[in-house]
Design a protein around this nucleic acid. Sequence first.
DNA 1: GGTGTTTTAGATCAGATGATCAAAAACTGA
DNA 2: TCAGTTTTTGATCATCTGATCTAAAACACC
Lengths: 219, 219
Amino acid sequence: MARPRTFDEKAVLDAAVDRFWTQGYEATSTRELAQSMHMTLASMHNAFGDKRTLFRRALDHYLDGSLRRRIARHEAAPSAGVAIAGFLRESVERSLGDGRQRGCLLVNSALEVTPADPDMQAFLDAELMTIESFFRRCIARGRQSGEIPDGPAPEDAARLLFASLLGIRVLARVRPDRDLLEGAARAALACLGLPALPAPHSPDAAASTGSAANGNTAS
Amino acid sequence: MARPRTFDEKAVLDAAVDRFWTQGYEATSTRELAQSMHMTLASMHNAFGDKRTLFRRALDHYLDGSLRRRIARHEAAPSAGVAIAGFLRESVERSLGDGRQRGCLLVNSALEVTPADPDMQAFLDAELMTIESFFRRCIARGRQSGEIPDGPAPEDAARLLFASLLGIRVLARVRPDRDLLEGAARAALACLGLPALPAPHSPDAAASTGSAANGNTAS
DNA sequence: GGTGTTTTAGATCAGATGATCAAAAACTGA
DNA sequence: TCAGTTTTTGATCATCTGATCTAAAACACC
Protein backbone atom coordinates (compact mmCIF):
# COMPACT_ATOMS: atom_id res chain seq x y z
CA MET A 1 0.00 0.00 0.00
CA ALA A 2 2.84 2.38 -0.72
CA ARG A 3 5.48 3.16 -3.25
CA PRO A 4 8.03 0.35 -3.25
CA ARG A 5 11.73 0.92 -2.76
CA THR A 6 13.88 0.84 -5.81
CA PHE A 7 17.05 -0.15 -4.00
CA ASP A 8 18.32 -3.40 -2.56
CA GLU A 9 18.95 -2.80 1.12
CA LYS A 10 21.84 -5.21 1.35
CA ALA A 11 23.50 -3.77 -1.71
CA VAL A 12 23.34 -0.18 -0.54
CA LEU A 13 24.52 -1.16 2.91
CA ASP A 14 27.45 -2.93 1.30
CA ALA A 15 28.32 0.32 -0.42
CA ALA A 16 28.03 2.30 2.80
CA VAL A 17 30.20 -0.23 4.61
CA ASP A 18 32.86 0.13 1.97
CA ARG A 19 33.04 3.89 2.35
CA PHE A 20 33.19 3.83 6.14
CA TRP A 21 35.64 0.97 6.04
CA THR A 22 38.00 2.68 3.64
CA GLN A 23 37.85 6.23 4.92
CA GLY A 24 36.40 6.12 8.39
CA TYR A 25 33.27 7.73 9.74
CA GLU A 26 34.30 11.36 9.93
CA ALA A 27 36.06 11.47 6.59
CA THR A 28 33.01 10.18 4.75
CA SER A 29 30.43 12.78 3.81
CA THR A 30 26.74 12.06 3.48
CA ARG A 31 26.82 13.12 -0.16
CA GLU A 32 29.60 10.69 -0.90
CA LEU A 33 27.64 7.99 0.87
CA ALA A 34 24.49 8.69 -1.08
CA GLN A 35 26.39 8.69 -4.35
CA SER A 36 28.09 5.37 -3.73
CA MET A 37 24.80 3.91 -2.57
CA HIS A 38 23.18 5.11 -5.79
CA MET A 39 20.49 7.04 -4.03
CA THR A 40 19.55 10.61 -3.34
CA LEU A 41 20.67 12.27 -0.16
CA ALA A 42 17.06 12.65 0.90
CA SER A 43 16.22 9.04 0.06
CA MET A 44 19.13 7.87 2.11
CA HIS A 45 18.04 9.93 5.07
CA ASN A 46 14.49 8.74 4.66
CA ALA A 47 15.53 5.12 4.64
CA PHE A 48 18.28 5.11 7.25
CA GLY A 49 17.94 8.23 9.36
CA ASP A 50 20.93 10.43 10.05
CA LYS A 51 24.57 9.66 9.40
CA ARG A 52 25.24 8.18 12.77
CA THR A 53 22.27 5.83 12.56
CA LEU A 54 23.27 4.77 9.08
CA PHE A 55 26.77 4.08 10.33
CA ARG A 56 25.43 1.81 12.97
CA ARG A 57 23.29 -0.06 10.48
CA ALA A 58 26.26 -0.43 8.17
CA LEU A 59 28.43 -1.65 11.00
CA ASP A 60 25.82 -4.19 11.96
CA HIS A 61 25.53 -5.31 8.37
CA TYR A 62 29.29 -5.71 8.20
CA LEU A 63 29.43 -7.72 11.40
CA ASP A 64 26.64 -10.01 10.28
CA GLY A 65 28.46 -10.74 7.08
CA SER A 66 31.89 -11.32 8.54
CA LEU A 67 32.79 -11.51 12.19
CA ARG A 68 29.73 -13.20 13.63
CA ARG A 69 29.51 -15.71 10.84
CA ARG A 70 33.21 -16.37 11.07
CA ILE A 71 33.21 -17.10 14.78
CA ALA A 72 30.33 -19.53 14.39
CA ARG A 73 32.04 -21.29 11.53
CA HIS A 74 35.35 -21.79 13.30
CA GLU A 75 33.79 -22.71 16.60
CA ALA A 76 32.30 -25.71 14.84
CA ALA A 77 35.82 -27.03 14.22
CA PRO A 78 36.57 -30.52 15.54
CA SER A 79 39.11 -29.30 18.08
CA ALA A 80 39.59 -26.13 20.08
CA GLY A 81 43.12 -25.60 18.86
CA VAL A 82 42.06 -25.88 15.25
CA ALA A 83 39.28 -23.39 15.88
CA ILE A 84 41.72 -20.81 17.22
CA ALA A 85 44.41 -21.43 14.63
CA GLY A 86 41.85 -21.43 11.83
CA PHE A 87 40.34 -18.18 13.01
CA LEU A 88 43.73 -16.51 13.22
CA ARG A 89 44.71 -17.85 9.82
CA GLU A 90 41.61 -16.41 8.27
CA SER A 91 42.13 -13.05 9.96
CA VAL A 92 45.68 -12.88 8.67
CA GLU A 93 44.65 -13.94 5.21
CA ARG A 94 41.90 -11.38 5.05
CA SER A 95 44.29 -8.70 6.20
CA LEU A 96 46.83 -9.60 3.54
CA GLY A 97 44.38 -10.27 0.76
CA ASP A 98 42.50 -7.02 0.95
CA GLY A 99 44.73 -5.04 -1.36
CA ARG A 100 43.25 -1.85 0.01
CA GLN A 101 44.54 -2.05 3.55
CA ARG A 102 41.17 -1.51 5.09
CA GLY A 103 41.89 -3.59 8.14
CA CYS A 104 38.80 -4.39 10.16
CA LEU A 105 35.88 -1.99 10.29
CA LEU A 106 35.15 -2.95 13.88
CA VAL A 107 38.68 -2.21 15.05
CA ASN A 108 38.95 0.95 12.98
CA SER A 109 35.69 2.17 14.46
CA ALA A 110 36.68 1.26 17.98
CA LEU A 111 39.52 3.74 17.75
CA GLU A 112 37.61 6.46 15.98
CA VAL A 113 34.62 6.55 18.26
CA THR A 114 35.26 8.78 21.24
CA PRO A 115 34.25 8.23 24.85
CA ALA A 116 31.84 11.11 24.23
CA ASP A 117 29.61 8.64 22.42
CA PRO A 118 29.07 5.99 25.09
CA ASP A 119 26.25 4.23 23.24
CA MET A 120 28.42 3.54 20.25
CA GLN A 121 31.32 2.57 22.45
CA ALA A 122 29.20 0.08 24.31
CA PHE A 123 28.01 -1.39 21.06
CA LEU A 124 31.54 -1.75 19.74
CA ASP A 125 32.83 -3.13 22.98
CA ALA A 126 30.08 -5.71 23.17
CA GLU A 127 30.99 -6.86 19.71
CA LEU A 128 34.67 -7.04 20.55
CA MET A 129 33.77 -9.06 23.57
CA THR A 130 32.34 -11.78 21.38
CA ILE A 131 35.84 -12.29 20.04
CA GLU A 132 37.34 -12.49 23.49
CA SER A 133 34.62 -14.90 24.55
CA PHE A 134 35.25 -17.07 21.54
CA PHE A 135 38.90 -17.41 22.49
CA ARG A 136 38.02 -18.06 26.11
CA ARG A 137 35.57 -20.81 25.23
CA CYS A 138 38.11 -22.43 22.95
CA ILE A 139 40.89 -22.33 25.53
CA ALA A 140 38.60 -23.73 28.21
CA ARG A 141 37.47 -26.51 25.93
CA GLY A 142 41.01 -27.39 24.89
CA ARG A 143 42.36 -27.38 28.41
CA GLN A 144 39.57 -29.57 29.63
CA SER A 145 40.07 -32.13 26.91
CA GLY A 146 43.81 -32.09 27.47
CA GLU A 147 44.39 -30.90 23.91
CA ILE A 148 45.90 -27.64 25.09
CA PRO A 149 48.73 -27.90 27.63
CA ASP A 150 48.81 -25.91 30.82
CA GLY A 151 50.05 -22.35 30.71
CA PRO A 152 48.68 -18.96 31.63
CA ALA A 153 45.23 -18.86 33.21
CA PRO A 154 42.61 -19.54 30.54
CA GLU A 155 41.26 -15.99 30.80
CA ASP A 156 44.72 -14.55 30.32
CA ALA A 157 45.51 -16.82 27.41
CA ALA A 158 42.29 -15.66 25.76
CA ARG A 159 43.18 -12.05 26.49
CA LEU A 160 46.53 -12.50 24.84
CA LEU A 161 44.99 -14.00 21.72
CA PHE A 162 42.43 -11.22 21.71
CA ALA A 163 44.98 -8.44 22.02
CA SER A 164 47.21 -10.05 19.42
CA LEU A 165 44.35 -10.27 16.98
CA LEU A 166 43.55 -6.59 17.48
CA GLY A 167 47.19 -5.76 16.92
CA ILE A 168 47.24 -7.79 13.74
CA ARG A 169 44.21 -5.88 12.53
CA VAL A 170 45.90 -2.58 13.27
CA LEU A 171 48.94 -3.67 11.30
CA ALA A 172 46.70 -4.82 8.47
CA ARG A 173 45.99 -1.17 7.85
CA VAL A 174 49.47 0.29 8.05
CA ARG A 175 51.79 -2.55 7.16
CA PRO A 176 50.08 -5.63 5.72
CA ASP A 177 53.25 -7.67 5.61
CA ARG A 178 52.97 -11.45 5.62
CA ASP A 179 56.05 -12.09 7.71
CA LEU A 180 54.87 -9.65 10.33
CA LEU A 181 51.26 -10.77 10.60
CA GLU A 182 51.97 -14.48 10.33
CA GLY A 183 54.89 -14.15 12.69
CA ALA A 184 52.77 -12.64 15.41
CA ALA A 185 50.06 -15.25 14.99
CA ARG A 186 52.61 -18.06 14.81
CA ALA A 187 54.30 -16.99 18.02
CA ALA A 188 51.01 -16.62 19.85
CA LEU A 189 49.94 -20.13 18.90
CA ALA A 190 53.34 -21.66 19.57
CA CYS A 191 53.92 -20.18 22.97
CA LEU A 192 50.45 -21.16 24.17
CA GLY A 193 50.98 -24.72 23.01
CA LEU A 194 48.38 -24.50 20.28
CA PRO A 195 48.56 -26.09 16.84
CA ALA A 196 50.46 -24.17 14.20
CA LEU A 197 48.82 -21.91 11.65
CA PRO A 198 47.25 -24.01 8.92
CA ALA A 199 48.46 -23.43 5.39
CA PRO A 200 46.83 -20.47 3.66
CA HIS A 201 43.66 -21.59 1.99
CA SER A 202 45.13 -22.22 -1.45
CA PRO A 203 48.08 -20.32 -2.80
CA ASP A 204 47.85 -22.39 -5.97
CA ALA A 205 47.68 -21.39 -9.60
CA ALA A 206 45.22 -18.93 -11.13
CA ALA A 207 46.56 -16.45 -8.65
CA SER A 208 49.49 -15.60 -10.87
CA THR A 209 47.63 -12.53 -11.97
CA GLY A 210 47.82 -10.22 -9.04
CA SER A 211 44.15 -10.76 -8.25
CA ALA A 212 44.43 -7.68 -6.06
CA ALA A 213 41.74 -5.22 -5.15
CA ASN A 214 38.72 -7.23 -4.23
CA GLY A 215 35.52 -5.71 -3.06
CA ASN A 216 34.24 -6.82 0.26
CA THR A 217 33.25 -10.40 -0.09
CA ALA A 218 31.88 -11.80 3.10
CA SER A 219 31.97 -15.56 3.74
CA MET B 1 64.73 41.68 13.82
CA ALA B 2 61.03 41.02 13.84
CA ARG B 3 58.02 40.88 16.09
CA PRO B 4 58.48 38.08 18.61
CA ARG B 5 55.97 35.32 19.10
CA THR B 6 53.69 35.57 22.06
CA PHE B 7 53.08 31.86 22.39
CA ASP B 8 55.14 29.00 23.75
CA GLU B 9 55.58 26.50 20.97
CA LYS B 10 55.63 23.48 23.24
CA ALA B 11 52.55 24.60 25.10
CA VAL B 12 50.46 25.17 22.00
CA LEU B 13 51.62 21.89 20.51
CA ASP B 14 50.58 20.19 23.73
CA ALA B 15 47.14 21.66 23.25
CA ALA B 16 46.98 20.53 19.64
CA VAL B 17 48.09 17.05 20.62
CA ASP B 18 45.34 16.85 23.17
CA ARG B 19 42.64 17.69 20.65
CA PHE B 20 43.88 15.25 18.03
CA TRP B 21 44.42 12.63 20.68
CA THR B 22 40.96 12.92 22.14
CA GLN B 23 38.93 13.37 18.99
CA GLY B 24 41.04 12.27 16.09
CA TYR B 25 42.23 14.24 13.10
CA GLU B 26 39.06 14.55 11.06
CA ALA B 27 36.79 15.33 13.98
CA THR B 28 38.94 18.25 15.07
CA SER B 29 38.33 21.54 13.29
CA THR B 30 40.95 24.18 12.75
CA ARG B 31 38.91 26.68 14.73
CA GLU B 32 38.73 24.34 17.66
CA LEU B 33 42.47 23.82 17.41
CA ALA B 34 43.20 27.52 17.34
CA GLN B 35 40.95 28.14 20.30
CA SER B 36 42.51 25.46 22.46
CA MET B 37 45.95 26.68 21.44
CA HIS B 38 44.96 30.20 22.48
CA MET B 39 45.82 31.69 19.15
CA THR B 40 44.06 33.10 16.16
CA LEU B 41 43.25 30.90 13.21
CA ALA B 42 45.54 33.04 11.09
CA SER B 43 48.36 32.94 13.61
CA MET B 44 48.11 29.20 13.79
CA HIS B 45 48.28 28.86 10.05
CA ASN B 46 51.13 31.30 9.89
CA ALA B 47 53.13 29.39 12.45
CA PHE B 48 52.35 25.81 11.51
CA GLY B 49 51.03 25.75 7.97
CA ASP B 50 47.87 23.87 7.11
CA LYS B 51 46.00 21.39 9.25
CA ARG B 52 47.79 18.36 7.96
CA THR B 53 51.21 19.87 8.58
CA LEU B 54 50.20 20.93 12.06
CA PHE B 55 48.99 17.42 12.74
CA ARG B 56 52.32 16.04 11.80
CA ARG B 57 54.13 18.51 14.01
CA ALA B 58 51.82 17.66 16.87
CA LEU B 59 52.35 13.95 16.33
CA ASP B 60 56.08 14.45 16.33
CA HIS B 61 55.85 16.49 19.48
CA TYR B 62 53.81 13.74 21.11
CA LEU B 63 56.26 11.05 20.09
CA ASP B 64 59.22 13.01 21.37
CA GLY B 65 57.55 13.45 24.72
CA SER B 66 56.39 9.89 25.17
CA LEU B 67 57.22 6.92 22.96
CA ARG B 68 60.79 7.72 21.97
CA ARG B 69 61.77 8.79 25.42
CA ARG B 70 60.08 5.78 26.90
CA ILE B 71 61.88 3.28 24.70
CA ALA B 72 65.24 4.82 25.49
CA ARG B 73 64.51 4.76 29.20
CA HIS B 74 63.48 1.12 29.34
CA GLU B 75 66.19 -0.05 27.02
CA ALA B 76 68.68 1.14 29.62
CA ALA B 77 67.30 -1.45 32.05
CA PRO B 78 69.82 -3.89 33.49
CA SER B 79 68.26 -6.90 31.79
CA ALA B 80 66.35 -7.46 28.56
CA GLY B 81 63.44 -9.12 30.31
CA VAL B 82 63.06 -6.22 32.69
CA ALA B 83 63.15 -3.79 29.79
CA ILE B 84 60.26 -5.56 28.07
CA ALA B 85 58.23 -6.11 31.21
CA GLY B 86 58.82 -2.55 32.33
CA PHE B 87 57.78 -1.15 29.00
CA LEU B 88 54.60 -3.20 28.98
CA ARG B 89 53.82 -2.26 32.54
CA GLU B 90 54.14 1.40 31.74
CA SER B 91 51.96 1.04 28.64
CA VAL B 92 49.26 -0.68 30.66
CA GLU B 93 49.49 1.85 33.43
CA ARG B 94 49.24 4.76 31.04
CA SER B 95 46.25 3.16 29.39
CA LEU B 96 44.48 2.67 32.70
CA GLY B 97 45.49 5.95 34.28
CA ASP B 98 44.35 8.22 31.51
CA GLY B 99 40.79 8.67 32.71
CA ARG B 100 39.82 9.91 29.28
CA GLN B 101 40.38 6.74 27.30
CA ARG B 102 42.54 8.40 24.74
CA GLY B 103 44.65 5.34 24.09
CA CYS B 104 47.78 6.09 22.08
CA LEU B 105 47.84 8.90 19.54
CA LEU B 106 50.18 6.92 17.31
CA VAL B 107 47.92 3.89 17.21
CA ASN B 108 44.77 5.98 16.85
CA SER B 109 46.35 7.81 13.94
CA ALA B 110 47.62 4.64 12.31
CA LEU B 111 44.03 3.51 11.92
CA GLU B 112 42.61 6.84 10.88
CA VAL B 113 45.11 7.65 8.18
CA THR B 114 44.11 6.05 4.90
CA PRO B 115 46.34 4.40 2.31
CA ALA B 116 45.50 7.43 0.19
CA ASP B 117 48.04 9.37 2.25
CA PRO B 118 51.18 7.29 1.77
CA ASP B 119 53.52 9.90 3.23
CA MET B 120 51.70 9.95 6.52
CA GLN B 121 51.38 6.19 6.52
CA ALA B 122 55.10 5.79 5.99
CA PHE B 123 55.78 8.18 8.82
CA LEU B 124 53.46 6.32 11.17
CA ASP B 125 54.79 2.96 10.12
CA ALA B 126 58.38 4.01 10.66
CA GLU B 127 57.49 5.12 14.14
CA LEU B 128 55.66 1.88 14.88
CA MET B 129 58.68 0.03 13.67
CA THR B 130 60.79 1.54 16.41
CA ILE B 131 58.59 -0.33 18.87
CA GLU B 132 58.99 -3.59 17.02
CA SER B 133 62.74 -3.04 16.83
CA PHE B 134 62.90 -2.34 20.52
CA PHE B 135 61.27 -5.66 21.27
CA ARG B 136 63.48 -7.45 18.79
CA ARG B 137 66.66 -6.02 20.27
CA CYS B 138 65.55 -6.97 23.75
CA ILE B 139 64.66 -10.52 22.77
CA ALA B 140 67.96 -10.98 20.96
CA ARG B 141 69.88 -9.63 23.90
CA GLY B 142 68.04 -11.82 26.38
CA ARG B 143 68.38 -14.95 24.30
CA GLN B 144 72.07 -14.39 23.84
CA SER B 145 72.72 -13.89 27.52
CA GLY B 146 70.63 -16.93 28.35
CA GLU B 147 68.23 -14.79 30.36
CA ILE B 148 65.35 -15.58 28.03
CA PRO B 149 64.69 -19.26 27.34
CA ASP B 150 64.25 -20.65 23.86
CA GLY B 151 60.91 -20.33 22.19
CA PRO B 152 59.58 -18.84 18.99
CA ALA B 153 62.11 -17.27 16.63
CA PRO B 154 63.30 -13.95 18.06
CA GLU B 155 61.63 -12.02 15.24
CA ASP B 156 58.35 -13.78 15.88
CA ALA B 157 58.53 -13.28 19.61
CA ALA B 158 59.08 -9.58 18.99
CA ARG B 159 56.16 -9.52 16.57
CA LEU B 160 53.92 -11.08 19.16
CA LEU B 161 54.89 -8.53 21.78
CA PHE B 162 54.42 -5.78 19.23
CA ALA B 163 50.97 -6.93 18.16
CA SER B 164 49.92 -7.47 21.76
CA LEU B 165 50.97 -3.97 22.67
CA LEU B 166 48.97 -2.54 19.80
CA GLY B 167 45.97 -4.57 20.92
CA ILE B 168 46.34 -3.31 24.45
CA ARG B 169 46.38 0.25 23.12
CA VAL B 170 43.23 -0.40 21.14
CA LEU B 171 41.53 -1.72 24.23
CA ALA B 172 42.75 1.27 26.21
CA ARG B 173 40.34 3.33 24.17
CA VAL B 174 37.23 1.14 24.31
CA ARG B 175 37.61 -0.90 27.48
CA PRO B 176 40.38 0.24 29.81
CA ASP B 177 39.89 -2.63 32.21
CA ARG B 178 42.81 -3.64 34.42
CA ASP B 179 42.12 -7.35 34.36
CA LEU B 180 41.94 -7.32 30.60
CA LEU B 181 45.02 -5.24 29.87
CA GLU B 182 47.18 -6.76 32.58
CA GLY B 183 45.99 -10.22 31.67
CA ALA B 184 47.09 -9.87 28.08
CA ALA B 185 50.47 -8.48 29.07
CA ARG B 186 50.91 -11.10 31.77
CA ALA B 187 50.19 -13.96 29.40
CA ALA B 188 52.54 -12.59 26.75
CA LEU B 189 55.39 -12.34 29.22
CA ALA B 190 54.69 -15.69 30.83
CA CYS B 191 54.41 -17.72 27.68
CA LEU B 192 57.61 -16.24 26.26
CA GLY B 193 59.50 -17.06 29.44
CA LEU B 194 59.97 -13.42 30.40
CA PRO B 195 59.84 -11.95 33.88
CA ALA B 196 56.40 -11.10 35.23
CA LEU B 197 54.90 -7.63 35.10
CA PRO B 198 56.45 -5.49 37.83
CA ALA B 199 54.11 -4.01 40.39
CA PRO B 200 52.35 -0.83 39.27
CA HIS B 201 54.51 2.13 40.07
CA SER B 202 52.93 3.00 43.41
CA PRO B 203 49.34 2.27 44.21
CA ASP B 204 49.90 3.71 47.68
CA ALA B 205 48.05 6.37 49.56
CA ALA B 206 47.33 9.90 48.37
CA ALA B 207 45.49 8.25 45.53
CA SER B 208 42.36 7.87 47.63
CA THR B 209 40.98 10.92 45.90
CA GLY B 210 40.05 9.71 42.47
CA SER B 211 42.93 11.65 40.95
CA ALA B 212 41.22 11.07 37.60
CA ALA B 213 41.40 13.21 34.50
CA ASN B 214 44.98 14.12 34.08
CA GLY B 215 46.25 16.21 31.23
CA ASN B 216 48.89 14.68 29.06
CA THR B 217 51.98 14.43 31.16
CA ALA B 218 54.83 13.02 29.20
CA SER B 219 57.82 11.40 30.94
C1' DG C 1 63.80 57.76 14.89
C1' DG C 2 63.41 55.20 10.80
C1' DT C 3 63.59 50.68 8.16
C1' DG C 4 62.73 45.98 7.57
C1' DT C 5 60.65 41.83 9.09
C1' DT C 6 57.58 38.98 11.38
C1' DT C 7 53.57 38.17 14.16
C1' DT C 8 49.00 39.24 15.31
C1' DA C 9 44.06 40.49 14.65
C1' DG C 10 39.61 40.55 12.53
C1' DA C 11 37.16 40.07 8.45
C1' DT C 12 36.21 37.38 4.76
C1' DC C 13 36.17 33.81 0.90
C1' DA C 14 34.57 29.85 -1.63
C1' DG C 15 33.11 25.61 -0.91
C1' DA C 16 31.54 21.60 1.82
C1' DT C 17 28.56 19.71 5.41
C1' DG C 18 24.45 17.41 7.60
C1' DA C 19 19.87 17.70 7.12
C1' DT C 20 15.09 19.06 5.65
C1' DC C 21 11.26 20.65 2.62
C1' DA C 22 7.46 20.49 -0.68
C1' DA C 23 5.92 18.25 -4.48
C1' DA C 24 5.76 14.62 -7.80
C1' DA C 25 5.83 9.53 -8.52
C1' DA C 26 4.62 4.70 -7.68
C1' DC C 27 2.36 1.35 -5.69
C1' DT C 28 -1.90 -1.25 -2.77
C1' DG C 29 -6.24 -2.17 -1.25
C1' DA C 30 -11.05 -0.70 -1.39
C1' DT D 1 -10.89 4.70 -10.20
C1' DC D 2 -9.53 6.66 -6.25
C1' DA D 3 -7.89 7.33 -1.48
C1' DG D 4 -3.96 6.35 1.36
C1' DT D 5 0.83 5.56 2.03
C1' DT D 6 5.57 5.63 1.14
C1' DT D 7 9.47 6.62 -1.79
C1' DT D 8 11.82 9.60 -4.71
C1' DT D 9 13.48 13.95 -6.41
C1' DG D 10 15.66 18.46 -6.78
C1' DA D 11 16.02 22.56 -4.33
C1' DT D 12 17.27 24.72 -0.36
C1' DC D 13 18.72 25.93 4.54
C1' DA D 14 21.80 27.22 8.13
C1' DT D 15 26.06 26.22 9.59
C1' DC D 16 30.70 24.82 9.50
C1' DT D 17 35.00 24.03 7.03
C1' DG D 18 39.95 25.06 5.78
C1' DA D 19 42.31 28.79 4.37
C1' DT D 20 43.62 33.59 3.00
C1' DC D 21 43.71 38.75 2.86
C1' DT D 22 44.67 43.28 4.63
C1' DA D 23 46.25 46.04 7.94
C1' DA D 24 47.89 47.11 12.49
C1' DA D 25 51.33 45.92 16.11
C1' DA D 26 55.87 44.71 17.99
C1' DC D 27 60.29 43.98 17.93
C1' DA D 28 65.82 44.26 16.07
C1' DC D 29 69.11 46.61 13.75
C1' DC D 30 71.15 50.83 11.93
